[in-house]
């Protein structure tokens, strides 16, 4: 429908509504204001009950419709804690919700205007105030306790032996880096970056960099039941590594290194069976506004068995070798430097 027609239609509807409203005022003056007000008040009082029922029915209908569309069970052990906390919080807040909404609409209906009844002059009660200050305070304390327990576990240090993977965001894709056979991620600095052959700005003088594997599609390959620590950074603006199936996320901030660790518990193939969806895939979503491509910063997470992961690793070439083929060793894909992992701390930036 053309724009002009639409505007005219809306204007017409408004004029009609206006006339209806004016005529209802005429009806009021014919019936007598008092009488009209009384009838209308009863109708509106009744509407309070209707609204309440509509709200409750709507909530349940929405729930029935939405549940099949929700994410499957949490795919990490931290995620299970998050889901548990969610249920606890939902129970507490849900109870309060149903009680208060019911009282609101019930009181509105029940205490509608009645000439035969006077409003009760009840201005305060310190006892009531104490009760309904203390009970929420206790409930909050419980939620805080449960919440902080989970929080400190999640944000604490990753367990020793956790796999380390670096995840770097840029407008508009993710880049992941694996430490390679030496188990160490080499140093990098932003002034070394060039999009041709050094997307992360790795310092090639640091031998630990020579075997690092860089995936420019940001793919994360994780091992079931093995803790992984993500070392997160950004090249340009703030991004965020969003892992909704694992129930966590962490910002990627230029100039700052952030970390998050978790243990994936369900492989991609297992999840395909659980969801009944052959196309199921774990996805990384960017969860901090980063510009016009924010909605397209997608990366895949593959959770696989240790054997599958080893097999995948064996097929990878280090980023250095990909860009400096003369450095490729004769047989094996990546040579382990003599002074490798032992005692070397993780070095970055």
């Amino acid at each position: 429908m053309s724009g002009l027609l639409l505007v005219l239609l809306v204007a017409l509807i408004f004029v009609v509504l206006y006339q209806v409203s004016r005529s209802s005022e005429l009806v009021a003056s014919i019936q007598g204001e008092e009488n009209f007000d009384r009838k209308r008040n009863k109708l509106l009082g009744f509407s309070m009950l209707i609204l309440f029922v509509a709200l409750m029915v709507g909530i349940f209908a929405c729930h029935r419709y939405m549940m099949p569309l929700m994410a499957p069970e949490a795919a990490s052990d931290h995620g299970k804690d998050v889901d548990f906390m969610f249920i606890v919080t939902l129970s507490v807040t849900g109870l309060v919700f149903f009680i208060t909404q019911t009282l609101l609409f019930w009181f509105a209906y029940k205490y509608q205007r009645d000439e035969n009844r006077k409003a009760m002059f009840f201005s305060h009660s310190n006892k009531l105030e104490m009760i309904w200050t203390t009970i929420p305070a206790v409930a909050m304390a419980v939620l805080v306790a449960i919440g902080l327990k989970a929080w400190f576990k999640m944000t604490g240090d990753a367990p020793k032996g956790a796999m380390q993977i670096e995840m770097v965001g840029k407008q508009f894709n993710w880049i992941s880096r694996y430490p390679g056979p030496d188990g160490v991620l080499g140093k990098r600095y932003f002034t070394n970056i060039n999009d041709k052959d050094n997307v992360l700005g790795q310092d090639w003088a640091d031998k630990a960099n020579l075997d690092d594997i860089v995936l420019q599609n940001g793919e994360l390959r994780l091992i079931k039941d093995k803790p992984v620590e993500l070392i997160i950074g950004s090249r340009d603006v703030i991004h965020d590594v969003g892992l909704s199936h694992f129930r966590l996320k962490m910002d990627a901030v230029p100039g700052i290194t952030t970390r998050i660790w978790f243990t994936p518990t369900i492989t991609t193939s297992e999840m395909k069976k659980i969801t009944g969806n052959e196309n199921f895939v774990y996805e990384v979503s960017c969860d901090q506004m980063c510009g016009k491509g924010h909605y397209s910063m997608r990366a895949i997470v593959v959770v696989e068995t240790e054997a599958e992961h080893k097999a995948w690793l064996a097929k990878q070439q280090s980023y250095y070798v990909q860009n400096h083929p003369e450095a490729a060793p004769a047989a094996a894909p990546a040579a382990a430097p003599a002074d490798s992992a032992a005692g070397k701390k993780l070095t970055m930036n």
């Binding site: 995620g79 804690d81 998050v82 906390m85 969610f86 919080t89 939902l90 507490v92 807040t93 909050m140 939620l143 805080v144 919440g147 902080l148 989970a150 929080w151 999640m154 965020d240 909704s244 129930r247 966590l248 996320k249 962490m250 969860d287």
Partner: peptide, 13 residues
């Protein structure tokens, strides 16, 4: 109350 609890916010943020 969900969002104010950081362990939940880490998912819901």
């Amino acid at each position: 109350l969900f969002l104010g609890n950081s362990a939940l916010d880490i998912h819901l943020h």
